[in-house]
Amino acid sequence: MRYLEILKEAKMTGLSLLTLIIFWLLAGILLSGVEMTICNIPIWAIVGTIGVWTMAIVLAITLSRKIKDVDL
């Protein structure tokens, strides 16, 4: 039972990685044609860096909430 729970958590981690890769790709590809800038920084670069970092933090928080506490 404990192994199955850990396996599920590992799969969730893999899914988080996949989500982040898709977000990263979309930020770079979809937004690279957008002319908008903030402080002369192109919007794709902002979403592709700070956006990806923020997304990673959200995923890390979600993941840590889903992982169950166990006695080691």
């Binding site: 988080s16 990685l17 982040l20 592709g48 990806v52 970092w53 990673a56 995923l59 890390a60 993941l63």
Partner: peptide, 8 residues
């Protein structure tokens, strides 16, 4: 920025 994955 891909290195944000390294810890989680």
């Amino acid at each position: 920025v891909v290195q944000v994955t390294a810890v989680f």
